[in-house]
Write a protein that binds this DNA or RNA. Structure first.
Lengths: 353, 353
DNA sequence: CTGAAAGCGCTTACAG
DNA sequence: CTGAAAGCGCTTACAG
């Protein structure tokens, strides 16, 4: 009993099918069939084998099974945004979809490093993943990896896809519509748009939707104010919008609503408005984007915000990958999934103007 | 050439060692040895085999290798905090450590669901992970899974460990010392502590360190103010500390420093102070905890904060797991890793008081 | 210096 | 109704 004297924990060898077969007094083949509900044998034999498997704590070695089946029930998840709040709900949705179907997920953070990306992709392929999902932190940037012509299906979610790939992204223009139409429905007339830098594609998509909705409603569209994705920019934008001299042509009136490109900008806008003695939502309604709960719920008042439904998007991506792995074809192209507006208290009730 | 007519992309079969051997005109065994620098053969043969492997794009099937080696170069990462900002740097550190050593990571979110946890652990074990790392969002709560008596080594990081396990956590008391000593060094005399709810172990650890440091410095320690981990609580705490009637015994003086239990509380404190016309750091110095950059950098002024070095902690955990997997024993117990103070502008320079 | 054999743990035709 | 054989893709003693 030397093993019992060891100071280090000793890890027991896993029990194999051979062990089960021996204990049950049958061949390995029969044992396998009994456990997999394959082949024909008396119900008693089958049950006896199962019982001994259970009592021995037998769990089949997935490695061996995968080798045979050419299917590892494993998927690779590539991201360049381990820290970000976008990839998190996304990845959570992806995992959910996959886990529910018994597949495990290799998480790989490739950052912005092509070599790291290459390394991870090769490792995943070597481990015979059934497929790969590429995610990112913005939909207009490519991951630093080449995922074309892989031996396995690939899906893109919230990142710039290869041509002819299947991809899922949020419908940012639709999300912007939701926000601006909400303001219109409430009777707001002078709706400003304060958003991020021009280098982001979504900035233009949303700005266009903003203009479209205002036009459709016969309202004047001011030029969107582009800046950083920060609270500080929210402050500065308010200074520009509210501190300038009043114009005389009637168009220079102060906004009664601000649609912000993200929740941090909105936070800055709300704080700056309060510092000027302007009431939200009384004087000015504010809507954010991203629905970053920890921010949206801490603003005073709590912030109405556009939610990109990232978890649902991830779930859809996961499910589609699975069907691809299963041999079902999927039409290539970019599918845009709808956003939703989460209404809190920063827009108030319909106005009687 | 029917395959070329298919509408669905056709995934080429991976090339096997057998293919390489055939192409090079040697046996599979020889091919294997050539590629693994094993056995003896002429340098030319070896190079020729390697060259044909390269030209065929051969990559060994890890599944087969793992089956043989009883080592999958794969590790399971358990968490109940996919959304949180604590597990992210942690996981990033863990991944880094592992990836650098060629091991891939299965990410499993078990949430608070014991059944989900059980499921994930079994799936990982079936896939023959070499080891498991359990992480969480607070160090005084157990994951909803039983990780004792597994067939593989287990490491705990930033979560409540099983007895006799090896675990890594942040040294919260040490972090609190850093903060309070920083205030003392700056000459602050009346240092308050506004923190989270009593249900968190770290609240008491840090509060005790706070008292200890003040005592060591001959300064009065006020009772720590316990509340929620929120901005709103920061506001309320400032109201309690600064709006009450002045006491006459000299002990009722307003604080000149506030050490906060997290960055959100600190944000609330700073905002509330500004609203009262009090200057930070002029009148009151403020230190936060967590060093959540997106918050710490957005406060006005930017917030000095205690960083738990979570990425480093994760890295340490990953490395230790690897050495455990490699057969090196590791002493069981909880290892506390030091925090560091990230100085920004919310404490100012030494006072001349 | 190179190859045939056995085996990792399992499954699946194929015999009996 | 059950078992022997072949094989998934690889590696490692062991012969020659």
């Amino acid at each position: 009993m030397a093993a019992d004297d060891q100071p280090v924990p000793v890890f027991p060898k896993p029990v194999t099918l051979r062990d089960v077969a021996a204990a049950a007094g049958v061949s390995v083949a029969t044992a396998s069939k009994a456990l997999n509900s394959q082949g024909r044998m008396t119900a008693e034999t089958r049950e006896r084998i199962r019982e001994t498997a259970r009592s021995l704590g037998f769990r089949p070695n997935s490695l061996a099974q995968s080798l045979l089946r050419r299917r590892s029930f494993t998927v690779g998840l590539l991201t360049n945004d381990t820290y970000g709040r976008f990839s998190l709900p996304l990845m959570s949705g992806i995992s959910d979809a996959l886990v529910d179907n018994g597949v495990s997920v290799f998480l790989c953070n490739v950052e912005e490093d092509p070599r790291l990306g290459q390394l991870h992709v090769e490792a995943m392929l070597d481990k015979r993943v059934d497929g790969i999902i590429a995610t990112g932190k913005r939909i207009d940037r490519h991951l630093p990896v080449d995922l074309s012509d892989l031996r396995v299906p690939v899906i893109y979610a919230f990142t710039q896809p290869d041509p002819d790939a299947v991809a899922f992204v949020s419908d940012d223009a639709g999300g912007a519509r939701l926000a601006v139409e909400h303001f219109c429905g409430l009777g707001r007339k002078r709706i400003a748009h304060v958003t991020g830098p021009a280098s982001f594609a979504v900035v233009h998509d949303r700005a266009q939707a903003y203009r479209d909705v205002l036009t459709e409603n016969g309202l004047p569209a001011a030029e969107p104010l582009l800046g950083a994705w920060s609270e500080a920019w929210g402050h500065e934008a308010v200074a520009r919008l509210f501190d300038g001299p009043r114009r005389q042509d009637g168009k220079g009136e102060r906004p009664d609503a601000v649609f912000c490109g993200n929740d941090q900008i909105a936070r800055g806008v709300i704080d700056a408005l309060r510092e000027r003695g302007l009431s939200v939502p009384g004087d000015v309604g504010v809507i954010g984007f991203d629905n970053w709960e920890i921010v949206a719920e801490a603003t005073r008042p709590p912030l109405t915000s556009v939610d990109m439904n990232l978890a649902a998007l991830g779930r859809e991506a996961g499910l589609t990958l699975l069907s691809l792995v299963g041999g079902q074809p999927a039409a290539p192209g970019i599918r845009k999934l709808p956003c939703r507006l989460v209404v809190r208290q920063s827009c108030g009730h319909p106005m009687d103007g």
